[in-house]
Nucleic acid binder design. Sequence first.
RNA 1: GCGCGUCUAGCUCAUCGGGUAGAGCACCGGACUUUUAAUCCGGCGGGCUGGGUUCGAGUCCCAGGACGCGCACCA
Length: 502
Amino acid sequence: MAAPDDEATVPTPGGEGLPELLAARRRKLERLRAEGIDPFPPEFDGVVPTADVRAAHEDLADGAEADARYRVAGRLAARRGGGKAAFLDLVDRSGRIQLHARVDVLGQASLDRLVGLDLGDLIGVDGTVFRSRRGELSLRVEDWTLLAKSLRPPPEKHHGVQDVETRLRHRELDLIGNEDARARFVTRARIVSALRRGLDEAGFVEVETPVLQPLYGGANARPFTTHHNALDRELFLRIAPELYLKRLIVGGLERVYELGKDFRNEGVSHKHNPEFTMLEFYEAYADYGDVATRTEQLVAAAAGAAGYAGELDFTPPWRRETLTEAIRSRTGIDILAAHDRDALAAAMAARGLTVPPEDTWAQLVDELVSKHVEPTLIQPTFLTDYPVELSPLAKRHRDDERLVERWEAYAQGMELANAFTELNDPDEQRRRFEQQRADAAAGDAEAQPYDESFLQALEQGMPPTGGVGLGVDRLVMVLTGQRTIREVVLFPAMRDEGETAR
RNA sequence: GCGCGUCUAGCUCAUCGGGUAGAGCACCGGACUUUUAAUCCGGCGGGCUGGGUUCGAGUCCCAGGACGCGCACCA
């Protein structure tokens, strides 16, 4: 990032402080080079995680020496003493270990050079295990190697980086300075692995479908658009992989899933990032009840992999409640009885609820759910059986033609997943697209485009199928106890910034 | 997009009714062979940007920027 001449060209907001700190590190870099030391050597073989060292010597008594030698590597995080002996703390991905450096082992020159390193420098160490009189498992440094010089000051050693903007724009500093951030992203990886493992073991095939799509679909959202020069055409970043995955079901893959990024050109909030990670899976010969069971199991397994120990109970089966009943119990409004725009608006107004004047019936239902139902769904819950108007890709309910076989899964007052028994009647799908086209003509910016190619695939014959879309970032939020999505996304969307020193 | 709030040293934070801004960590120099927020002595370093009011502005006013919270938007 910062070229050496940055300091000369960029106005320095911090006065003389930062340049002096940078200059001090560069002086050390040059001194090391002058002493014939390569500050950026190419490798360091045979490194063992510090957690392994710790685990192997749990029983070592205070003040005792072990007959074991280890090679560890990491970042220099703290330093105590000097002169004839010093203690240093080394941090790697697995944790932290104390080093003890003594002049009678290393010689004065090597000790001085080690003590003269900057906090944040990366070093490799060969050392023998002992436990200090105060009970701290330590390595006595027998040999050490500079692995990379750090030319910028590290975060404050006790408090880490607190400033939210710095933590997000320079996530590396967050990860260096804040152990909980490091742990959280490792947990995220474990959750993703658990989801993949669960589907793989159930015989699902992982696939990759286009991110750049000639026509977007599979969700109600505004897309990002881009342009392909050679083809000279507009393309969309996908808002969902749904339609492609169903074509694979038509093709006979029977159980498919895709885990990847979707893109929606909408607002940023504590639970929305313009690019986010979605898991979609489709299962032939299954309905929405079957995939609800599978979702419960997958999420419960992910919670286990994350070591989740919070207030939520993900043990199957989760609570199930119909959407109609959920709205009725919270507001007293029966959306099926008030089944047109004016009737529903009147019912809402009669109860003192605000009625957005431009909203359609479907949007009013959405409003009731998000304002009055969603916040009450703390424990994992399936909200089932949605009005057909809200769900252009879902199959009509087998017992009630006003509804579709659809559920959304909620936890911690937040939507985690959405699923249907998939609509596989091509003629009805065509009618639903036509309705969407009418909605778009009436000004609905999020109506789904008419996709003739997808309709042709359905005409080929799609088996009865259950499909699920699960918001992975939100699941990670819930399982790691985070209130905002940007704490679980490594590099969340941020406004542009004039590149100043951090 | 709207409203409210925040912005002080590299980092974490103080301070004041408008009158020459402090600490800890880090950094530089020195002491120290079992420390662990090591300690001790000495040193370096600062008011988001741009206007305005005022004898004097980090402090009051205006505009801008970034960030935070809420709302709006949001399968």
